[in-house]
């Protein structure tokens, strides 16, 4: 009976939510960018006088006078325009991992969950795959500003390699202290670059490097550096998560 009422309630909420929102959400074809922040971010016209104007200059491969020229606009939003969010985000992850360690860390005695006879092929190939996967992860986050991907994605891939190692080899164990140092180090560097922005340019996390040309690896000023740091941090953090949950009493 309770379930029936739950279904009714949920459906009612769905009705009210949906029909309240839909007429105003202008989705699909009507969804236009003309007055949205997203358009300004795409045009890189934030600091212009009239930021919503339609621009016609060519950016890719030429631009070097716009305010940030990461070819990947999503990256430019994450790491530059809304970089404070990203700082908070990596800290959330960092803190959550700390909490997990605090909860689980004491109860186990340096053991880990063992699996029954890992497959031989997996076992053997994992050692070959590990550097490749890590390399791929690094590639993802180093190229975050010009191709799809970035620090979080790359970090996850690196952490996935750790997970793979845990599945493939029963005697594998992550050296989590090193990971912690890496985590802290990259977090600190993130902040130091941010503070350098204040010292040099006057605003927190403001770019003070050369912007380069859009589409080149060395472009976008601080963006690739910070994304690399984020990537390192995320890979360290997620590896630590794997380590903690693989621990056993």
């Amino acid at each position: 009976m309770k379930k029936f009422w739950a279904i009714i309630t949920v459906l009612l909420i769905l009705f009210f939510l949906g029909s309240g929102l839909i007429p105003d959400l202008k989705i699909y074809k009507q969804n236009n960018l003309s007055q949205k922040t997203g358009k300004v971010y795409l045009n890189r016209t934030v600091n212009d006088d009239s930021p919503f104007k339609e621009i016609d200059k060519k950016l890719y491969g030429e631009a070097n006078d716009v305010e940030n020229n990461a070819a990947n606009s999503v990256t430019s939003v994450i790491v530059d325009y809304r970089a404070l969010d990203t700082l908070g985000e990596v800290t959330v992850l960092f803190l959550a991992i700390t909490g997990v360690i605090a909860l689980l860390g004491k109860s186990k005695k340096n053991n880990r969950i063992l699996f029954e006879k890992p497959n031989y092929i997996l076992n053997a190939s994992s050692k070959i795959l590990l550097p490749l996967i890590v390399l791929f992860g690094f590639y993802i986050f180093i190229h975050g500003h010009i191709t799809p991907g970035g620090g979080f994605q790359g970090g996850t891939i690196v952490a996935a390699s750790v997970l793979m190692m845990y599945f493939a080899q029963n005697n594998y164990k992550l050296k989590n202290n090193r990971m912690k140092v890496l985590e802290s180090f990259s977090g600190l560097s993130f902040l130091i670059f941010g503070l350098l922005g204040i010292f040099i340019m006057g605003d927190f996390l403001q770019n003070f490097l050369e912007l380069g040309i859009m589409g080149k690896l060395f472009s976008g000023g601080l963006i690739p550096i910070i994304y690399i740091l984020v990537g390192l941090k995320v890979s360290a953090e997620l590896s630590n998560v794997v380590y903690e949950f693989m621990g056993e009493e």
Partner: peptide
Amino acid sequence: SITFLVII
């Protein structure tokens, strides 16, 4: 949920 529903 009920608060939500009632207010709406």
